[in-house]
Design a protein around this nucleic acid. Sequence first.
DNA 1: ACGGTTTATGCAACTAGTTGCACAACCAGG
DNA 2: CCTGGTTGTGCAACTAGTTGCATAAACCGT
Lengths: 183, 183
Amino acid sequence: MSLPHAILTALLERPSSGLELTRRFDKSIGYFWSATHQQIYRELGKLEAEGHIRALPSEQPTRGQKKSYEVLPAGRAELARWTAASQDPKPHRDTLLLRLRAAAVVGTEGIEADLRHHLALHRRQLAEYEEIEQRDFPPGKGGPQDRLRHLVLRAGIDLETFWTQWLTHALEEFTELPDRDPA
Amino acid sequence: MSLPHAILTALLERPSSGLELTRRFDKSIGYFWSATHQQIYRELGKLEAEGHIRALPSEQPTRGQKKSYEVLPAGRAELARWTAASQDPKPHRDTLLLRLRAAAVVGTEGIEADLRHHLALHRRQLAEYEEIEQRDFPPGKGGPQDRLRHLVLRAGIDLETFWTQWLTHALEEFTELPDRDPA
DNA sequence: ACGGTTTATGCAACTAGTTGCACAACCAGG
DNA sequence: CCTGGTTGTGCAACTAGTTGCATAAACCGT
């Protein structure tokens, strides 16, 4: 039940069309809640039907015509309600760790290359986050809103840092491992 | 497409019935790939139909009768194939970070209590992992299989460590925050 | 031998997310 | 002007995971 609230947050930050939202998800909110454009369009339809958002009345659009949305008071209220309500953390899932565990049983064939691949991706993401931090959060100032957003970004940075370190360590272990199949 | 492979791994480690699997998922594999008993039963049915596993022929069971499964060669081969094949990491989703971002727009009401709740859960999980580490991975020895499994456990420990630190830091920030609504 | 609890398996319906494709408008270049 | 790429919206079908419930046997006290 998070996607509609992710969209409400994004729309409160700035009213947008479906595609604009999709792009903004790709490089901001999507870092911790990704969504495809189809999910977003479907959800926009629902939110509009529920009276949480409305299309900006600039022109009446048809297919292929841009359509922007803004949040209505009911939508803001719903977002505030959801934000304040406590939620149990969903168990997280990680395919790579699963594969490593499987590798302990059926052999490590092929995994090392993939560890390198993941390492490269995490390094790239880390660099991107750090760039954003330098651009958007210069040291020492910013109101409460900025403090919160910075906190979220820090989580991203620290997570990526963790993964690059862990993957580096894992690769070191691999070089020490006898490379025969343990099965 | 990970659940069947998680099950194959678990069954290779030890043949089990559906409920035994469910319990083992709750306190081992489920740490990074959780599943409910319904998912597991459904998947066991599919895996059996595909010839990847078979019911141990101890007795012919009906409803309410324990039924254990073991992995067939075809199942082991499939697991090896899947383990070796490279996969793109799935984007991860985190409701708490999303809520924090929403809080920057609609106010921080109620979130602080939940941060404390999450902190408690992560601390508990961390303690559990560390207990497992002491019990199952005494320093200095172990074959390649143990090295790999320890590596996976380390990822869990380091992740929980990260979260406890980040949440602690976040709570500190909160005490410094003016507690009025930024909206 | 009965009734209640626990153990164990399973179906059905639902919710969320993904994939593949269709289609309209709009914008260049020849 | 028409053709082919890009932008933007959207439907339909599929896959994965969750929730709620049904059912059967086993075990246990009285």
